[in-house]
């Protein structure tokens, strides 16, 4: 998407087109869309980020993480607790929450990426449920608020923005949009780097890579840490935007929503999962009104894996290629 450019002429063209798209997308919705639509779109962006973290691990390392919510919700809880209980400034609390969650992800990853992909999937589910139980423990009720969750209001500013600014959909949109672009481009470059190539090779045949002298363990741990960092950014932006954290943000529901968003958009590349997040947010608004969000999630998992394994974006790209052969081929000519 971001230019499978092959000639030297098309690289700047892709960058210019990307910059224009980025600029327009950051500014226009603020004028065109209603507050309600923007609010949904903001949620969609953040879900898209979480989906991107799930999708990156799926498409590059062949690992499905069902514990994304524990990172997403956990960073929000730590941010809130660091300010209310330990008196940190908002900026320090964000950095602390981010680092603490990523450190947790590193330890967990070091432990569980050694297992096979199926066991990895089960273990991430178990670890996610563990975090949800920790938050609900009676002993930490004063910190986490138990089932009620926590209201997060901070004094002072982060990067010149007050709590009220983050809660305003119009002001939040450019932040989310920028974060999505930065992370999308970063992950896209990682997948084209040596690390991405190694990950895909390990995914296809771990044994052969090991025999060929590659370290198959460290790249997967690094990838796991990377996607957890993305999930933490998504969680922190979410808590800034929503102004509260609840145990639901740690639940299996959030993890499966992210998975569905990734499958909907298509797990390959950065655009698919992000688009999937937006699609899911608007679909959820439609179905959620009838209390059928979970049903939507379950049905979407089955539908997209069985019938549309490439997702909406992947499917569209394939359809365009079929209609207009010769346009923007990813491989082939050099």
């Amino acid at each position: 998407m971001l230019g499978h450019a092959s000639s030297s002429f098309r690289v700047p063209a892709a960058i210019v087109a990307g910059a224009i798209l980025f600029g327009l997308g950051g500014v226009l919705p603020g004028y065109l869309a209603s507050d309600f639509t923007l609010k949904l779109a903001n949620e969609g962006l953040l879900l898209g980020l979480l989906a991107l973290s799930v999708a990156f691990l799926m498409s590059e390392a062949g690992l499905v993480a069902l514990g994304a919510a524990s990172i997403y919700g956990g960073s929000g809880y730590l941010f809130a607790i660091a300010m209310s209980e330990w008196g940190m400034s908002p900026g320090a609390a964000i950095v602390f929450a981010f680092l603490a969650v990523v450190a947790y992800g590193a330890v967990l990853g070091a432990l569980i990426v050694r297992t096979n992909p199926l066991a990895f999937m089960m273990l991430t589910l178990a670890a996610g449920e563990m975090i949800r139980h920790v938050v609900m423990l009676e002993a930490v009720h004063d910190y986490t608020g138990g089932a009620d969750g926590l209201v997060v209001s901070f004094k002072g500013a982060i990067l010149g923005m007050q709590a009220a600014d983050f809660a305003n959909p119009q002001h939040f949109w450019p932040i989310g949009w920028t974060a999505v672009w930065l992370i999308g481009v970063t992950l896209w470059s990682v997948s084209r780097s040596r690390l991405g190539a190694t990950l895909r090779a390990v995914r296809q045949n771990e044994e052969r890579m090991r025999f060929s002298g590659f370290n198959t363990y460290v790249p997967r741990v690094v990838a796991y840490i990377l996607v957890n960092a993305v999930a933490a950014v998504s969680g922190l932006l979410h808590v800034l935007n929503a102004g509260f954290v609840s145990p639901e943000s740690l639940g299996l529901g959030v993890s499966t929503n992210a998975l569905v968003a990734a499958l909907m958009g298509g797990t390959a590349g950065s655009v698919g999962p992000l688009a999937g997040g937006l699609i899911f947010a608007f679909a959820q608004d439609e179905f959620g009104a009838r209390g059928a969000t979970q049903l939507l999630t379950g049905a979407a998992i089955v539908l997209f894996i069985v019938v549309f394994p490439r997702g909406v974006v992947g499917g569209l790209v394939a359809a365009v290629r079929r209609v207009l052969p010769g346009i923007d081929r990813p491989r082939g000519k050099t």
Partner: peptide
């Protein structure tokens, strides 16, 4: 992995 995910989806349904 895909089949496992399908069973997850069916379980939710």
């Amino acid at each position: 992995i895909e089949v496992a995910l399908v069973t997850l989806g069916l379980g939710i349904i």
